[in-house]
Structure formats: structure tokens, C-alpha cells
Design a protein around this nucleic acid. Sequence first.
DNA 1: CGATGTGAAATGCTTCACAGCA
DNA 2: TGCTGTGAAGCATTTCACATCG
Lengths: 221, 221
Amino acid sequence: MGRLPVYQRILEEVLRAGTTTVSSELLGSLARVNAAKVRKDLSMLGSFGTRGAGYDTAFLIEQIDRELGLNHVWPVVIVGIGNLGRALAHSQGFAARGFRVVALLDTDAAIVGESVGDVTVRHLDDLEAIVSEQPLAIGVIATPASAAQRVADLLIEAGVRSLLNFAPKVLTVGPEILLRYVDLSIELQIMSFYQSRMVAPGGDGSMPVIRSIGLTSTGVD
Amino acid sequence: MGRLPVYQRILEEVLRAGTTTVSSELLGSLARVNAAKVRKDLSMLGSFGTRGAGYDTAFLIEQIDRELGLNHVWPVVIVGIGNLGRALAHSQGFAARGFRVVALLDTDAAIVGESVGDVTVRHLDDLEAIVSEQPLAIGVIATPASAAQRVADLLIEAGVRSLLNFAPKVLTVGPEILLRYVDLSIELQIMSFYQSRMVAPGGDGSMPVIRSIGLTSTGVD
DNA sequence: CGATGTGAAATGCTTCACAGCA
DNA sequence: TGCTGTGAAGCATTTCACATCG
């Protein structure tokens, strides 16, 4: 369920603001979804809301963590330490959750050896050696498009099962690999699509309400 | 339809490789979706496939461009010129499509005045002046979480209707604003979710096939 | 009373299967 | 013959509405 991480982010902010109880109404309005949908989503993890009151914020966060598999720690490798790779490496989104960046790789001699955060950039050729010490679960591809496919192949060969691709390149991988794209150009096109829909004459002058939010994922067969 | 930009990216790569005709089968396998789904999607733009042959690659690209509103040129502003903002500004994804980065904003005196690409970074306070010369359609927020809400408010006040938020912060905006999140932490959590699903015992030892791909969007009311 | 949890209805999306055309 | 275009069937998701409980 692609909405759970969104709820979780909201709950954390709500909790930090000192609100220890949330209603499906509030959570829904922050996530821009229907309150009934929130309840249905949450009911799949069990039923620990309190009728008349709502959900206990902290407890709900724990439950979602568990459902998302965030009680594991996932070792992450980032390949391509340009501006984007650096931004990703610095992102506290990694550390804050159960993701540990255990390797940064590049092929540029000017970059290899540099320290980003508390990890030293190593050469892509060291991948095999790195994997032999420590398995890698998730590979983040932040290289130029031209290198992306080769990097993907190398990562898969090294045992990585999940790829997050930031390069503007369509990748070909086996069906057993979990692959997601984060593509700025595609994001902008989606916005463009909705915006042109909004501007387009709909008959009356009323503006449709956009409830798009977040990044949804597709299913598992 | 959130899959159109994905098809379009694939078609461009296919065309560059010299293939002037694609079947729904091929397009589907590259996009990791069912061929029937491809045909249904494309049939919504009209019917210009050739039975027995497939679709003309170049023509299809044009049609999708039109559907996505890419015959317009969308003026884009990026706020927050750190590593991420720079990466976004340099991304050829902008220039290649109908998106023109017309302004880069920051509040750091050490950054304001710097040139990134062929655009000079200006101070966030200049926003009003910039808008008076030229309207802005899409705002990209690449600031730290702490600044994101304020920036969003300022952009909306300046007439921006669509926001693409890279900051790890839940934003509160009016219902008339199109808002999308690109959140690394959320992306990783989604991968984590699917991966733990794959690893989790499903009864037999067989691995489910993951066909997740791309960034889908949600609907318009 | 107020808000959850959940059948049931409504809606939307995906897949099938095949007629129809180049 | 090969592949598109599309009803119709099959699923999944969303929403409604309300019984239920703290």
C-alpha cells in the first residue's frame, strides 16, 4: 500500500507537534485523501483506533513501521556521486529510517576517495569486494543516463534485488528485480498533464479539485 | 494517465535506436505492463496504430506530447539551490521537454548571484518582481524541510499553481493547488515494503513477480 | 456523542478474447 | 497472417452509510 509511508511521515510531524491522538479526518485532510479511505487502510493493520477519540499517534507509527518492514535495516548503495548522489547521501531521510548507506560508488578518479558524510567514495570496480564483506539490498542509481544500464547490470550481478533509478533512462532488468523510477522529467510531465487538464475548458468555469499526492506504487502479482 | 510519460520516454529511446515502428507488445515489455493495457491507454488518444504492424514511433510521440500539454512551454522556478537544486537545474530533462527554468532562488548570500547553467540565482525576496515580468507555472521546492512551507506559501501567493516538493515535509496548501511529492525516504519505504513482501514466507518457495514501475499519479476529481 | 470499523454499493481499472483490418 | 481496437468479464479500489463501541 503506497499510502502508508505518507501517513507515517504525517504522523511523525503530527507527533513532533505534540498531538498524541489523530482522527482519520485529520490524517485524511493532511494526506489529501478521504477519511474513509484512511480508516480502510489502517484497518488492514489491525484495529487499534479508539472509537470516539481516534488513533494513538505513536502507536500507529510503530504499527506502520512494522508493516513496512522498517524494523529491518536495509543496506543501501548509491552509485554516481554527482550533485544528485551527494544530495541523496546527505538526505536525512536515509538515516532517520531503517536505511543505512553503506557504500558510495563512482568511476571518476577525482571523486573516488572523497568523504561524503562519514562514508568514503569507492570505485565502482570495488563493488564485488564490498559485497563480499556485506550484502547490499537496495541500489540507488544517480549516474548519467549513459551509464545507468551498465550500473544496473553490475548491481544485480552483485546481488542487489531492488533498484531505485534516478537516471533518465529506461532500464531493462529481469522480472525478479524490483525497479522504481524517480524521474524529474516524468514528474513534470505529469504535472503538465494535470495543469493542462485544469486549464482546458470543462464546460462550466469551475476548477476541478486535484487530489494528487505522493508517489503511488503498483502491485505485486 | 500517469503511464503516458513513461511510454513517451521509451518511445524516444526506441526512436533514437532507429526503430520507427513499435508494437504494443514491445512497448509493454519495456514499460513492464500488459500489452492490452498499452493498447487501451493509447486508444484514448485516438486510433492511429496500423493493424498487423504496430504504431509509428515518431507519430505516437507527437500525439502523446499533445495529450500531455507539452506543446505549451511551462515556466519553472526552482527554490533552494543546494546539491539537489543544482542537480535539478542541470537536468536535461527540463530543457529537452517543454519546461524552461526561468528562475533559481535561494536565500543564502553566498549562493545568490552565482550562475547555474545560464540562469543566475536570485534572492527569494525577488520573487514578486520576477513574477511581474513573467508568470511562473510550476514551482520546484528543493529547500530544507524547515523552509518548505514558507516557500510554498510564497510561491502560491506569486501565482504558482503547481508545486513539486522535494523537501521531506508535508505541505498544507489549498485544494486548488496541484501538489506532488518526490520524497526519497518515501520511495525507499515503498521498496522496503515490497522487498519484505518478497522475502516474507508466501507458503511455497516461489518468488512473486514484481511488476512495479514508474511513478503513477492519482486522479482528478 | 464522536469517531472507528466494515458490509455493501459504486466506481474505476485491468485483463481477456476476439472481431476486424492492413 | 499479425497486431490493433474494444466490448465484456473480472478484479480491485473507493466511497457510502451506519451499526458499534469507548
